[in-house]
């Protein structure tokens, strides 16, 4: 059911937009696109039908891990005359199936960019994370977009994300095309559910003895604001997105009223890696670095060029997250988190 533009309405209408991914980021974007009348044509591409009731959105079943997915995509893009593609099929939580993750993140992104290039799509938006910079002791306190993404050395999952970014940047070099990459810090808020929120919702939150890095969060609303800004206007390039401020990890745990359990680093990596293979640990051992060293991004560029203004602070994001979690315990907050 596509809405026809009203001639008496002066609001601008956006060209056809396609969306991939059914994680937290994809679903929130889909909800917004469904409700916003300025988007007359929305295409949703995913390997399974979303639970959300779709009113105007057209759904195409596509599995990015299949071969020739690029051909199918290109056909759809051409048929629907897509102008913008938002690629959110970039899971926040490292998938258990490592080889499928590689196919989806790295190869899937290549398919999307190639299909977009052949179908003359004008604009691509990729949702990435500030984790790609990697947590290193010699990071500057505020990582800018020019800083090399060094996480590939340690984590295969993040190396795939960096690959995806490279494909998008390559697409952005085509004349008349825009590629935007949104690198967001750890997303927190009432509805998200990722391995990081699961980490923070443990009653005993483990940290590493002797290390207490500064951490940074993105409130769900702030993230949404940045997506809106890049969809509505053209902002080529990479942008870091986060809520204002930073706080030490230990203080964040204290503020949530949880108990901080410092663990000895000795042998921890092996243990976590073993637990990861046994499907117990939520993330592979390379993610321990983020509990040890700094990985905080500067959002100056987004503020100056995009006009992004964080409405929340990191503490607000943390408190919104922990408040919703407490309400869920007493069944007063029924909306379950979107797994991502």
């Amino acid at each position: 059911m596509t809405k026809k533009s009203h001639p008496n309405k002066t609001t601008t209408h956006f060209p056809p937009i396609a969306l991939t991914g059914s994680g937290y980021k994809g679903m929130t974007l889909l909800k917004w696109l469904e409700e916003d009348p300025r988007f007359s044509k929305v295409i949703f591409l995913n390997y399974k039908k979303p639970q959300l009731k779709l009113k105007k959105t057209k759904f195409y079943k596509i599995d990015l891990t299949e071969t020739l997915a690029d051909l199918q995509l290109s056909k759809i893009f051409k048929k629907e005359k897509i102008h913008t593609v938002v690629h959110t099929a970039m899971p926040i939580t490292p998938p258990r199936n490592v080889s499928r993750a590689h196919e989806l993140l790295s190869v899937g992104s290549m398919y999307v960019t190639n299909a977009a290039a052949s179908a003359k799509v004008k604009k691509l938006i990729l949702t990435s994370t500030t984790d790609v910079y990697g947590a290193f002791p010699n990071n500057p306190n505020y990582l800018t977009e020019e800083h090399p993404a060094r996480a590939a050395q340690r984590s295969r999952f993040l190396a795939d994300k960096i690959d995806a970014e490279k494909y998008f940047l390559r697409f952005g070099k085509n004349p008349g095309c825009t590629a935007t990459i949104i690198r967001s810090a750890t997303i927190l808020g009432p509805t998200i559910n990722s391995y990081k929120t699961r980490y923070f919702s443990l009653p005993f939150v483990h940290t590493i003895l002797g290390y207490d890095p500064l951490v940074q969060f993105t409130h769900e609303e702030d993230l949404m604001q940045s997506y809106r800004l890049v969809i509505e206007n053209n902002h080529p390039g990479i942008f870091n997105i986060a809520s204002s401020g930073v706080l030490p990890l230990s203080k964040a745990i204290q503020m949530m009223g949880k108990i901080n359990v410092p663990l000895l680093l000795l042998g921890l990596k092996t243990l976590v890696q073993t637990l990861w293979y046994l499907n117990i640990s939520p993330a592979p051992s390379s993610h321990i670095d983020y509990l040890k060293y700094l990985c905080v991004a500067a959002i100056d560029k987004a503020q100056k060029q995009m006009g992004f203004q964080p409405k929340y602070s990191c503490i607000d994001a943390l408190m919104d997250f922990v408040g919703a979690e407490r309400l869920r315990h007493v069944n007063l907050y029924t909306e379950t988190g979107v797994t991502s």
């Binding site: 204002s244 930073v246 706080l247």
Partner: peptide, 18 residues
């Protein structure tokens, strides 16, 4: 809990450089 988030304001308690 030791810290009450409402009592803390970001500017006062946390330095941007740790």
């Amino acid at each position: 809990p030791l810290l009450n988030a409402e009592e803390l304001s970001l500017e006062k308690s946390f330095d941007p450089f740790g």
